[in-house]
Nucleic acid binder design. Structure first.
Lengths: 360, 360
DNA sequence: ACTAAGAATGTAAACGGTTACAGCATGGCT
DNA sequence: AGCCATGCTGTAACCGTTTACATTCTTAGT
């Protein structure tokens, strides 16, 4: 344990120490080619004694593989992404790959610069969520560089870009039907900025067409920023007119839903008695809230795993990649309930009772 | 946009295309040394046209710097770590560094193998949380390799290992005093496994000595695993004997506290009326729970930022590193309250009233 | 005993950059 | 005119691996 660190510790030093050529050391380290038992042991002893470790730069330079995959997501603070990353790192490390990570914080410019540095660093592939997968400079760059990648969370229709996600349109539709089945007739949606989230768009589309298919009036849609979600004015606008106020609110993600519920309670509206709220994502904490959060569960960690496996297959040349839609699940938490419950006196109008018939 | 990708795209190709030497291209790319205006423009045009990007392997091999820092944490699913990572990636990327990430899932063996691969990959430094910073093979290895690192969350007493955290002992003490001030006399702690968390140990120590200093009987301490926290038997044991049941519970982290609250309610115990619960970490979601979670807030993201800044300074050779204790804050959420409130009839005994005097 | 196959090992050329050093103009000084 | 400083550019060594190929040595088959 004395001079373990002193010497330069390259493969050459080990070779010298063990009295063999560098090729032999390389063979021992990589367990490749043929090396006699005795030589192998001697080399291994030198390696251990010197604390030698292969230099990934040298190796990467000659093999042109980094055994690194890049991951780019909007934010690490949202558990939905953290869970996916967790699944990715798990699968990657199983396969001997490391993970490089970057968050865009929903900044468009960050996407392109991140992809650029990841390419410089010779990542073998990339898993990412972009703002808009149909018109993305970042993806263009990735494709230009012939770097394999898999999208995650992104919704890709009519494009051969590969993604792992749930069917957000169907999910939006399911939410509409669920609300309808609970007797709701006036619904609305509060969503994260569509410009930063194609999946929010998909969820809205499913929700809107679902509502239309049910023969109900089109819902009011409100957008809020992802970074500092400013709920108050939205709630103000939604609930100032008692005649048009919704009884059911679909929020494009759980974090938003949680803020919305707080906001509603702050205004004296009870959830779900006055307003039902449904989130999207299925973050773990949702089940511990009161009321427990109704939501559309995406299997986030699993999505990360699948994306990683899929990408790794592709990297290893074991066949191409295909988009995967994982099943989502509606969780009927306590934040939704049947419509037509008692409204606070000041919000009650004769109109309401006309709109709200008992559920089918 | 036709052949942007075809050619081999090394610095040599660019040099050839621009009619200069590779040294000149290198100068242009790195904005180093002197290059005439015209040459620079010509080279830049070649670079743009060919879509050339420096190869980090080649560069790293000659400079022996990777501009990468490694981050190793127990888990990404716990927001407290995700927030810290978020702070780290933010600061790192500001400084032109990338972040490699790995989660140990509280597995001891993963620590050493992660550090080992990070060293192979020539990370410039590392930020990590280990199970036991005083006896850590991983840290020994890091020091043996002369790799700069900063701990985060870890509590390091009498050791020159550098860490960024809060004073967990003082925090534990503060919790004891807080409970005491609320009139609690019988307290207990439920903690994540001490073998995997030195900070849990520190929190316990502060809690225990604090309680002793207040002249109260020593609290019962229970350990649960980090992975599948099995709360039920612990609550069973804590509350089966009405005479010794605590009125205040300190949980070593918020996720645990949240589970504990659920468990208590499942047993028909009201929080905080029957039992007060205090967590630790200050995860964002805590304020949206009902009751809102009382907790010790650590500035997690800030801790990540500070650790990163500190490490980067060291990497750049701008002076050494020092441990930093950031201030914690007690948040008195609704999950704690004054002791002596009404117990459910079946849990009520004459004894209790003896133990519980009104608060000072 | 001779040969061919196969095992064990070594040699040296990549891989794609950085950078010390050298070389060549140019221009301003004495 | 001679000199030096300065600006610009090129040459080539080096960074630490992998790996195709060459070489040497065994060993089994005839």
């Amino acid at each position: 344990m004395t001079d373990k660190k002193r010497s330069k510790n390259t493969i050459r030093d080990v070779a010298l120490d063990a009295g063999v050529s560098i090729a032999t050391v390389s063979r021992v380290v990589n367990k490749l080619g043929t090396v006699s038992k005795e030589t192998e042991e001697r080399v291994q002893r030198s390696i251990d004694r010197m604390g030698f470790r292969l230099n990934a730069f040298g190796r990467g330079l000659s093999t042109a593989r980094s055994y690194t995959i890049g991951v780019m997501i909007p934010s690490l603070s949202n558990p939905v992404f953290a869970d996916a990353v967790s699944g990715i790192t798990q699968e990657a490390s199983k396969a001997g790959y490391n993970v490089m990570i970057a968050a865009t914080d929903y900044q468009h410019a960050a996407e392109i610069s991140t992809v650029s540095t990841f390419l410089e660093r010779q990542i073998d592939g990339m898993i990412l969520t972009v703002a808009d997968p149909m018109h993305s400079d970042a993806l263009d760059m990735l494709e230009g560089a012939q770097a394999p990648y898999a999208l995650i969370y992104n919704q890709v229709s009519k494009s051969d870009r590969v993604t792992v996600t749930v069917d957000n349109v169907a999910a939006g539709d399911a939410v509409a039907r669920c609300f309808h089945a609970q007797g709701h007739r006036v619904m609305a949606m509060i969503s994260g900025s569509f410009a930063e989230s194609d999946r929010a768009i998909a969820r809205r589309d499913g929700f809107v067409t679902g509502i239309a298919a049910l023969g109900l009036p089109a819902p009011v849609i409100h957008e809020v920023g992802f970074v500092n979600l400013d709920i108050e004015p939205v709630l103000q606008s939604l609930f100032e007119n008692q005649d048009t106020a919704p009884t059911a609110l679909f929020c494009s993600n759980d974090l938003l839903a949680i803020s919305v519920i707080s906001g509603l309670e702050r205004r004296g509206l009870r959830v779900p008695d006055d307003v039902s709220v449904m989130g999207f994502d299925g973050i773990a904490i949702g089940t511990h809230l009161h009321p427990t959060l109704a939501t559309v569960i995406q299997p986030s960690k699993r999505m990360g795993e699948v994306a990683a496996q899929c990408l790794l297959c592709r990297i290893k040349g074991e066949g191409g990649m295909q988009s995967t839609l994982l099943p989502f699940t509606l969780r009927l938490g306590e934040s939704t309930g049947r419509a037509c419950k008692q409204l606070p006196a000041d919000l009650q109008t004769p109109h309401k009772s006309v709109h709200r018939r008992p559920a089918q």
